[in-house]
Design a protein around this nucleic acid. Sequence first.
RNA 1: GUGAGCGUAGCUCAGUUGGUUAGAGUAUCAGGUUGUGGCCCUGAGGGUCAUGGGUUCAAAUCCCAUCGCUCACCCCA
Length: 425
Amino acid sequence: MMIKAITGTRDLIYPETLKWKYLEDTVSRVFNNFNYKEIRTPVFEETSLFARGIGEETDIVGKEMYTFLDRSKTSVTLKPEMTAAVVRAFIEHSLGKQQSLSKFFYISPMFRQERPQAGRLRQFHQFGAEAIGSASPMLDVEMIQMVYDILSSLGLSDLKVKINSLGIPESRESYKKKLREYLKDKKSKLSEDSRNRFDRNIMRIFDSKVESDQEILKEAPLLLEHLDKESVEEFDMVKKLLHSANISFEVEPRLVRGLDYYTRTTFEIDSEYVGAQSALCGGGRYDLLIEQLGGSPTPGVGFAAGMERILLACEKQNTLKIPGDKLDLYIVKFNDELSPEVFEIGVNLRRANLSVDFDYLNRSVKAQMREANKMNTRYVLFVGGEEYEKKQANLKNMNTGEQQLINVQDMETLVKLMKKTEGEG
RNA sequence: GUGAGCGUAGCUCAGUUGGUUAGAGUAUCAGGUUGUGGCCCUGAGGGUCAUGGGUUCAAAUCCCAUCGCUCACCCCA
C-alpha cells in the first residue's frame, strides 16, 4: 500500500515553492515597511489556551481542533489560529513591560480538521499581524492597509474591503436583547441552523446564507445602530483614516466574526476568485483578550490572511510572473573517466558561490547538453579531449552559442567571467 | 458531520450499444556517425483501468461496498 499525505495536507514541490517564496518575501517586505517584527511560536500549545482564547462555543474549538493527549497525558492542540498564541507569548515574556506598544507579524502553518474544499485545507498557512498596547484606530486601519498593500502588490485587483464594529460587551449585550426580542415570534420560521444560533450565539444568525432567514433579518435591528458612544467615534475615525489611505470599503453591519474575542472594529477582505471561501483575510480588535488570558488589561488588534487562498486568487487572475531558476554552469564531460576532475571543478566553483551542476549518470554528451538546456544554464564547460590534455576547456555561452578556450586551473578568471555577465538575459 | 460529482501510463485525457494482446498527446530514456543544447525525426520503457466483491460466455465499460479526490453546505483565512 502506498502511503499518501494526510487528507487536507499538501506537498509543495518546485516550481510551486517559487511562488511561496515570492509571497513570503512580499509579506515580509510590507511588514517591514510598517515596522512590524517577526514572531514565531510553537506549532502546538496547551489546549486550554485556545479554549479560553477563542471561545468554547466557537466552531473552531468545538469541532475543528487537532487535539490529543501527549505521553504525559497533557492535552495539546495544533494551533488553529495565531492570535491566542501571540498573546500567550506576549504575557509570558512580559513584553508589555519592555515597550508600551508591540507590533508583531508572523507567517505560519495552522491546523483545523474541516472537510477540504477550494481554498480550504487542514494544514493551511496564514500570515498576519498583531499590534498590542494601543487602542488607537490608526492601528485598526494600519492592519487593513498592510494586507491591502500586500494583496495589491501581488497584483490582485478585485478586492472588497468590508468593515464593521461589534462595540463593547455592554452595548452588545443590550443589543442582543433587542435582537432576541425582534426574532422571538419569528423563530419558528428560521432555519434549523439559525434556530440553534438563536440560543448559542444569536448574532451569528446574520451569517446565514438561507434566503428566508435573510428575508426575516431585513428588518432586524442592527448592532451598528446600538453601539456605545466611544465605539461609534472610533468607527468614524476608522472610516476617515481609510479614506485618507485611499482604500475604498463597504460598511457591512452584518459582518460577524466567528471568534469570541473580537470587540469594536472587525474587517474582512474578499475576492471573487477563490470559490465559495471568498475571504482572503479577516481581523479586528480584541481589547479584552489579553486580560482574559491572564495579562493586565491591554488593547490589541490584528488580522490573519490565508496564503493558499491568496495564491489561488493570483493564479486565477494570472498575476504572478515568476521566472524559473537559472543555473550558472553545467559541466559536460567527454568521457566518464573524467568524473573526478569534473567533480573537483564543481567543488571549487560552488564554493565561489556559483550554481553548478553536472552529469551523475554517465550519459552521452548529447544527453548532457539536453540536460544543460533544460536546466536553463547560462554556461557550459566542456571537459576532455585534446584541450584538456593542455588543461584547457571550452566555455560556451548558451545564449549566444559563442565558445572560448579557458585555462581550467585558472579558476579565478573563470569565476570572474561568469559573474561579470550575471543577471544577463 | 451532510450532499453531489469523479477515480484509465509521471501529467492531461480518449476508449463507441459490455466483445481480441487498453490508446493518444506530453513527460522520461536511448538513438539520428568519432566531442556540443533548443526545432525536427526514429525507437523504447511505463497501466492489477482506485480496491474488493457480484452479474455475464465475456467487464475499464453494468451493479454493490470500501477507500481516495474534487466541489458545495456548515464554518472560517
